[in-house]
């Protein structure tokens, strides 16, 4: 594909002063009249009339201002017609390129970018990527946008960096602390011309929210460390424990969980957390026993609902907070333990037979009670009697068959222990199993009593105003037989109903009585009724242990002297997890690499230009080494992964070609660019190479002026068959790393093997320039072998005068990961000696490409030494070109000997 760059015009300005911009001519005009015609976009296609031609002279003029953003280039189709309108020549194409001017500012895709990042994120963590476009020519400095953070709020210290090329905003360090600042606002400027002062700029805003992580350890705040509670009581709010946590409120990072480390083995306590206030309430859910334990130490710990962040995981240590709990004694009196007792009575047991004893237990003294007296409570058929002091239970009489039938074979009564001092009563249940058989039917001996016959007591103990407190009374009725009435309170003698049979009348009345009395008695049976009513019906509780408890809910005894929690964990005021030193010397210090390119399309053309991809080699501050520590490593990695920007290289050489096209013929422009990019980053799969030549349209003879190495490469590029280089060093790698430098001026290895592609992931750029030379050209300067092993080195120096032969040094590259071609052309410098002034780094560990091109030309400002930085740590492309022209005024350390 032939690409012609023939003419150019500049957008946005009047180019007519340059008319005619081109002219066409046919030799047919020598013997006949020729009419020249042009057509195409900008002529007879919109935009019309940009170009016009003088049909007779063939001069082409530009008539209008053009806009590159509308029409980047024009193709003018040129024809030569005879008087009959027939083509005399094969049409030619004239390409007119519209040179870009920087007339478009960058445009951000959004005015405000929003992002978020977790606090404590590692340095160099990607936060967000900004995007901006520039309508100017792609791959041109006018559209090359450099991003820069120009403002940060809060501005305490710069926390973010931006990649000036990609717009990636990353964390500068790992110190982001949501507890300090929950959000940052950045003002970012994007400037074209790579951020140059002459560029156009636009700004945008970035809001970065800092997300919370659980990087704060909670601690408890106790109003007191000593509390007390009465035994046998429950408490739903014994103590309020406030938890302090600096993490985001109401999040799991903030919500606390208080737990018992020790002291709650009996599960007496519970802690209920209020997730709105982060206050824990200590509750007593199981009564404590003073006699068993009058003092205990609760040990509490606290953590968050969420796991701790890894940044503080190691800092968290379980810290116990102690609470001293005093159990207050309560006079409990005596109880029957167990609450019921069972005896066996048979027909052989007679009157006053001692069937057992049932002693109340003094809970306060923890021994049999000595302060109570005992009385019978419910005593069906008046079967039993109890000794008021010893609690010995005896039979009143021998059990009769009637009693046996009434009781149904099983007696269940109650006894009461009465503590007159405490005014407390406790009830115990007596169960007697009447063993079947042998019961006599004789009428029992009835002692005079308040009840008649076999009446029974119904809850029949009047406690004379003693507090019975909340117990459940037992009310039992036994139906009398054989005309014996039953009653309590209302008693109807049976003899008033003589007209009925005694049994029938008794049953009838009993039925009514039962129906009438039951609701009444139930109403009177007010459990826990108000004490003090001496005549009231006060049932006696029949709880299992016979005790009458008063479960009060009491508040904790607040200690006015609030003790500080001595076990509060140490919370760092600032995140002391400093893992690396970071230079915070500025926000805009994040450039991972820099490129500079002279805009050769403009009016100010220079003969020297510098291209740096990845690591900028010297002088400027915009180097990857700006940051030590992690940031630096990351930056370097980024540099390393940058790869070769093919678009940029393409643009570079296109512009270079264009520049040469406009220059005097005195400088033949034989440029050869051979690019191997074998599966490298961004490389099109299978790409082999690219070779650019600048030369006369029909003259490829300039290839002959190339050095053998470049000619070989050019041949490869053109698809010509080339002979492989002989394997000059089959025992690769060499034992010695000394470079092998053939004598100067020796012929290159004829027909050597072609430049075998380097290994995958490598990039090779070979550049060559030839320039006219005059007499006295210095012999090529030997260059130290830049490679120890594993690479291909082509070192060539020659002049286009043809009098000097280049020296070529080729390594076997079978093990190569690099290809370095260094070529120098020393112009007509008399007495120049560059020995010692050129330094080449050792590239044995790198995977880099260095193209060094120098032209010695007159200059009065030669550097003292020409140094190529050591690119071992990068994998980039460096193209350095200098122009040094012969001068008599060379100063400094550059000594040029004949």
């Amino acid at each position: 594909e032939w690409i012609k760059f023939a003419a150019a015009c500049r957008e946005g300005e009047d180019n007519s002063k340059r008319n005619p911009i081109a002219k066409i001519h046919s030799d047919c005009a020598a013997n006949q009249q020729v009419t020249y015609r042009i057509s195409g976009v900008g002529i007879d296609q919109p935009p019309y009339g940009i170009f016009v031609i003088n049909q007779k002279t063939g001069e082409i003029n530009i008539t209008s201002i053009v806009d590159r953003e509308v029409t980047p280039f024009f193709i003018i189709y040129c024809r030569a017609l005879n008087s009959l309108g027939q083509d005399l020549e094969k049409p030619l194409e004239l390409r007119v390129r519209v040179l870009d001017i920087n007339d478009n500012p960058p445009v951000f895709s959004m005015s405000t970018f929003v992002g978020e990042i977790e606090e404590n994120s590692n340095a160099n963590t990607l936060v967000m990527v900004l995007n901006a476009t520039d309508a100017d020519e792609p791959n041109n400095l006018n559209s090359k946008i450099a991003f820069k953070i120009i403002r940060q709020e809060p501005s305490d210290s710069p926390m973010f960096i931006i990649n000036r090329y990609t717009g990636e905003i990353r964390t500068m360090n790992n110190f982001l602390d949501r507890e300090q600042y929950g959000q940052y606002s950045l003002a970012v400027r994007g400037s074209d011309r790579d951020g140059g002062a002459d560029g156009m700029s636009a700004e945008c805003e970035c809001n970065i929210k800092i997300l919370d992580v659980n990087d704060n350890i909670p601690y408890m705040e106790l109003p007191t460390q000593s509390i007390s509670i009465e035994e046998n009581s429950l408490n739903s709010n014994l103590l309020q424990i406030r938890v302090i946590d600096l993490d985001e409120e109401f999040s799991a990072n903030w919500m606390a969980v208080i737990f018992f480390i020790s002291g709650n083995e009996g599960n007496w306590f519970e802690i209920e957390m209020n997730e709105r206030t982060n206050v824990g309430t200590l509750k007593v859910v199981k009564p404590l026993d003073f006699e068993a334990m009058n003092n205990l130490q609760l040990s509490l710990g606290v953590r968050n609902k969420a796991e701790f962040h890894q940044s503080i995981m190691s800092q968290y240590k379980l810290t116990a907070t102690a609470i001293s709990v005093t159990v207050l004694n309560v006079v409990e009196g005596s109880v029957f333990r167990p609450g019921s007792k069972t005896f066996v009575v048979n027909s052989n047991m007679g009157q006053n037979y001692k069937i057992g004893e049932y002693v109340a237990w003094d809970l306060d003294a923890n021994r049999p009670s000595t302060t109570v007296r005992y009385v019978m409570g419910r005593n069906p058929t008046d079967l039993l009697a109890i000794d008021s002091k010893t609690a010995i239970i005896t039979l009143r009489n021998k059990v009769t068959m009637e009693q046996y039938k009434i009781l149904g074979g099983k007696y269940q009564g109650t006894i009461l222990s009465i503590d007159d001092a405490l005014q407390r009563t406790c009830t115990g249940t007596i169960v007697i199993n009447l063993e079947n058989g042998g019961w006599k039917t004789e009428r029992p001996n009835v002692n005079g009593s308040t009840t008649s016959a076999y009446g029974l007591t119904s809850g029949g103990v009047t406690t004379n105003g003693y507090t019975t407190g909340g117990g459940v009374g037992t009310v039992t009725f036994a139906v009398g037989t054989n005309g014996y009435g039953v009653g309590t309170g209302v008693y109807q003698p049976l003899r008033d109903n003589v007209h009925f049979g005694p049994a029938g009348i008794g049953l009838l009345i009993m039925g009514f009585l039962v129906l009438g009395l039951v609701p009444f008695l139930l109403m009177c049976c007010d459990c826990g009724g108000a004490p003090g009513g001496g005549a009231a019906f006060e049932p006696v509780p029949e709880c299992s242990d016979g005790a009458i408890h008063s479960w009060a809910v009491e508040g904790a005894q607040a200690d006015p002297g609030v003790l500080a929690n001595s076990a509060v964990p140490c919370i760092p005021v600032t995140n002391a997890n400093v893992i690396e030193y970071v230079d915070n010397s500025g926000v805009y210090t994040n450039e991972y690499g820099a490129r500079e390119m002279q805009d050769l399309g403009g009016g100010e053309r220079t003969t020297g230009f510098e291209l740096t991809d990845g690591v900028k080699m010297s002088g400027g501050p915009e180097i990857c080494q700006e940051y030590p520590g992690t940031l630096r490593r990351n930056s370097m990695r980024e540099c390393r992964e940058g790869g070769l920007n093919m678009n940029f290289m393409e643009s570079y050489f296109c512009q270079k070609a264009y520049a040469y096209a406009d220059e005097d013929e005195g400088r033949p422009s034989n440029d050869c660019l051979l690019i191997y990019d074998i599966e490298g980053a961004g490389s099109p799969a299978g790409s082999v190479g690219c070779c650019s030549f600048i030369g006369e349209d029909l003259d490829d003879s300039f290839l002959d002026t190339l050095g053998p190495k470049f000619k070989k490469l050019a041949d490869i590029s053109l698809g010509k068959d080339v002979e492989p280089f002989p394997d000059s060093d089959p025992s690769w790698p060499p034992k010695s790393t000394e470079p092998v430098c053939p004598p100067q001026g020796t012929e290159p290895t004829g027909g050597g093997h072609p430049p075998i592609s380097p290994r995958f992931g490598t990039t090779t750029v070979i550049s060559e320039n030839t320039y006219p030379s005059g007499p006295g050209v210095q012999h090529p300067t030997p260059i130290p072998d830049p490679l120890g092993y594993g690479n291909v080195t082509v070192t060539e120096s020659y002049t286009s005068s043809g009098t000097l032969k280049p020296s070529v040094h080729i390594h076997d590259n079978r093990h190569a990961s690099n290809v370095v071609v260094t070529e120098r052309v020393v112009g007509p410098i008399s007495g120049a000696d560059l020995q010692g002034m050129l330094e080449m780094p050792d590239l044995r560990d790198g995977s880099n490409v260095i193209v060094t091109e120098r032209v010695i030309a007159p200059s009065s400002s030669l550097p003292t030494t020409l140094t190529i930085p050591d690119p071992r740590q990068s994998s980039n492309v460096v193209v350095t070109e200098r122009v040094i022209q012969p001068t008599s005024g060379i100063v400094g350390n550059l000594s040029m000997h004949p």
Binding site: E1, K4, A7, I21, R605
Partner: peptide, 26 residues
């Protein structure tokens, strides 16, 4: 022969120079 020449704007002495088309082979 049928050729195109383009004008060189960079001549320093104001003279007009014409260049035949150059080409770049890719």
């Amino acid at each position: 022969d049928f050729r195109i020449q383009v004008r060189d704007y960079n001549t320093k002495n104001g003279t007009i120079k014409w260049h035949s088309l150059r080409r770049q082979k890719r």
